[in-house]
Design a binder for these strands. Structure first.
Length: 412
RNA sequence: CCAGGGGUGCCGGAGCGGUCAAUCGGGCUUGGCUGUAAACCAAGUGGCCCUGUGCCUACGUGGGUUCAAAUCCUACCCCCUGGA
């Protein structure tokens, strides 16, 4: 029931097109997977996103775990039935929250942090040198057994282990699930990243073991099941750790791979990491780049062999007034748009752009009308999905490089 | 008419002799958001310049006290609440 088939390879790069078959339908790659953390995309329905070409969506384990909502979802028979989603789904394992609720929130950094190296000028709250030991903070504690989260709502402590993560993901019933990992920070030292990486590898094995249960331990069996699991490569920005991780993860019988964790200090670091990691992974298997989704990054990553992206950017940007256009992003709250009769993007074919002016949406956003967010979310999601469609078309036509150049030229 | 309370920057609203060009909200302007603690966060928001423990103009209006007033006194104007 699960299959990933490469349908076309680019002659000049690692870019390729493919089809992922799942029990809930096919996904044409390279694909963008909109993120609906709590089983909602925030601002747009799954159906609507599907109409714009969204073929798969992502939901988060942690956010359905800390409130025990997964138990109720289980009674409905899983996410598809519960949230009425007629499309393939992925669930993230909760590993990212080890970072985003811990390190990330503590030091105000994301997966890519350009604030290093730090010296006397380190911003308040940021360490003056890389972190070599990290056990957690008030929200999350981490050790070799897993992560302990403090529920921000009621203060209750919750222990999330690789075993637990997989069991929850099985209950949630997404088509593609992820192994439980520890996402490190750009501020993590080599030593710490290595330690976390060992942990992630152990957890990967536990994840697989839990996933197979008493069923056939062969990868082939998994592919015919209702779910397939991706293993996550870690290693931060460190070359040998990335290699070590790629080898360790690819030695296990995952359906495919995801590249996660810190992607360095800059986009160039990230591209470098992809350059050295992807060739070490089985070419035939599907590859997901966790959490990345800015337009230039999509092109650079597709070129390096990435098939799947998930990213909160288009939906979050929309809530913050930031709109994707063929000339780069604009912020609708800017004064100039209040009298702008043009659509959000003159080249966009989405319903929002066919109907409304920037002036009207700018007005709604300033007045805090939720409809503004709905409109911008619809547009941004549609825009991203259309970009992916056109990337696939360009690959099919053997004109990926041309399309990349043309798109990025207009951008920014 | 009598008795109280009040008039502060675009708005609301602190301050009640010096550390006040004035706390804090909101608004406005501009940045930032990459496996969602994010419909959020940050910075700026009287004018001028040689950008400084700098100079002007500002706390209803006019006068005054004081080395020094948004802060005290006084007259006037306006607003609110009770009472005739």
């Amino acid at each position: 029931m699960f299959q990933f088939r490469i349908t076309k390879k680019d002659k000049k790069s690692r870019a390729r097109m493919g089809v992922l078959r799942t029990p809930h339908g096919a996904v044409h790659t390279p694909a963008f997977v909109p993120v609906g953390t709590k089983a909602a995309l925030r601002g747009i329905s799954f159906d609507r996103a599907k109409q714009y070409g969204g073929e798969m969506f992502m939901v988060n384990t942690y956010h359905l775990f800390h409130n025990e909502r997964y138990k109720i979802i289980g009674k409905f028979g899983g996410l598809h039935a519960y949230a009425k989603i007629d499309a393939p789904l992925m669930t993230d394992s909760g590993g990212f929250q080890v970072f985003s609720l811990g390190f990330g929130s503590e030091h105000g950094v994301g997966k890519i942090a350009d604030i290093f190296p730090v010296s006397a000028k380190a911003p308040a709250g940021r360490p003056s040198e890389k972190i070599t030991e990290y056990r957690g903070n008030n929200f999350v504690k981490i050790d070799d057994t897993g992560a302990t989260f403090k529920n921000p709502v009621n203060g209750q402590m919750l222990w999330l282990t690789p075993k637990k993560s997989i069991e929850i993901q099985q209950i949630l019933g997404a088509d593609i699930i992820f192994s439980f990992d520890e996402c490190t920070s750009p501020l993590s030292s080599y030593e710490y990243t290595k330690k976390a990486l060992k942990r992630t590898h152990t957890w990967a094995e536990v994840s697989l073991k839990t996933f197979y249960g008493n069923k056939h331990p062969a990868a082939a069996a998994l592919w015919r099941g209702k779910q397939a699991m991706l293993g996550i490569v870690q290693g931060g920005e460190y070359e040998d750790l990335r290699k070590e991780s790629a080898q360790a993860i690819s030695s296990l019988s995952f359906f495919g791979y995801a590249i996660g964790g810190s992607l360095g200090k800059s986009k160039n670091d990230m591209y470098r990491i992809l350059d050295l990691t992807i060739p070490l992974l089985d070419e035939k298997k599907i590859k997901h780049l966790l959490g990345i989704g800015e337009v230039d990054d999509i092109f650079e990553s597709v070129e390096r062999g990435i098939d799947l992206f998930d990213c909160v950017a288009p939906t979050r940007w929309a809530r913050h007034g930031s709109v994707l256009t063929s000339k780069g992003r604009i912020n609708i709250r800017n004064k100039q748009f209040l009298i702008d009769k043009k659509p959000l993007d003159i080249h966009c074919a989405c319903t929002v752009c066919k109907t409304y002016s920037r002036a009207y949406i700018s007005h709604l956003y300033r007045e805090k009308e939720v409809y503004a967010i709905m409109l911008m979310t619809e547009h941004n999601v549609a825009w991203m999905l259309d970009l992916m469609r056109r990337i696939r078309l360009s690959l099919k036509a053997g004109e990926f490089q041309k399309f990349k150049k043309q798109t990025l030229q207009g951008f920014q």
